[in-house]
Design a binder for these strands. Sequence first.
DNA 1: CATGTCTTTTAACCTGGGTTAATTACGCGC
DNA 2: GCGCGTAATTAACCCAGGTTAAAAGACATG
Lengths: 175, 175
Amino acid sequence: MKLGEFIASHGTPLTTQAGDHLFHQGDHDQSLYVVHEGLLKAYYLSPEGKEHIKSFILPGDSIGSLMASYAGKACTFSLVCLKPCRMTVVKFSDLYEASKSDTEISSAVVDFLLGFGMKKENREYELLCLSAEERYKRMLETAPAILDLVTQNEIARYLGVTPVGLSRIKKRVTG
Amino acid sequence: MKLGEFIASHGTPLTTQAGDHLFHQGDHDQSLYVVHEGLLKAYYLSPEGKEHIKSFILPGDSIGSLMASYAGKACTFSLVCLKPCRMTVVKFSDLYEASKSDTEISSAVVDFLLGFGMKKENREYELLCLSAEERYKRMLETAPAILDLVTQNEIARYLGVTPVGLSRIKKRVTG
DNA sequence: CATGTCTTTTAACCTGGGTTAATTACGCGC
DNA sequence: GCGCGTAATTAACCCAGGTTAAAAGACATG
């Protein structure tokens, strides 16, 4: 069975409003969210209340908490809609079980996970090797679309700087 | 077929000396290295010659360049042995193809990739949300073993600070 | 168009970590 | 034990980005 069919038949549709949370840090949400339309952000909240943005999720992307879904632990981050969204929710365990017997599904899951791994490695590279200014310039080149979708405030917290810091960087870069 | 059997039958053994490189940044190495014994480091070298350590690889771990193996691009990092190593080398494409038809293999690959994903997410969290000092303290708690295996110089470059910086942090933390 | 709310910019000051270089430990071979 | 190379510490200075607070835009609503 194709992965798309599996999701269509075993998933349930979900539409949300901007501001709706799908789960909070600490929850045990074991769903995979396949996004068809809208915009979400995944973020960490530190004990001191500082927000760090893990990623923005666009149509075509999928997201869920690996920690909760696979390791049975609490979600390490929160997931909130920045715009009204339309998606399909799949139980991680359903997909995981299906991948054990259906080679077509497991192939698609392997491809998904390999793509996921490359994204994470790329993010790791940026955070480990680049300065905030370099990360901003890189974002201008590789993902300019997102800049128009979210506030500068959120771009900053995604890049690992404060909004004040990003304002300074912008001024420096733009000249 | 079990993954272990596949690796044993389709892989080739390899032993190396400390200092040997398995591949360099820019190469197109499409191998997966399954480490039985020894110690390796994966690192990025910036155009200005600065080294950033992506990870240390211990017995039981596996490593390879996703970018080269799966995306067909150049390796984004280099891989070098810090101690003599004993490992098995598997062609990524062999394993990838096998996972398309053998459910036992694909299950193991899915599990491997899920574990890999969790590691990468954890590293992303540390680099995005924690200060260098917090990352050092966390390492003291969660991976004290590595501290004895490599130089402080390398710990620093793994944590994303300079050796001088780490020396200061140590002094601050240890009191 | 006045008002409140949110985002962005600017300014002043502070700090963690970078940089360079000198100094001190720690092996290790002879 | 002595010399030599590598690793770690220390010191002095610098700077990117954090912090706090105030000011300036930007919009929406009444």
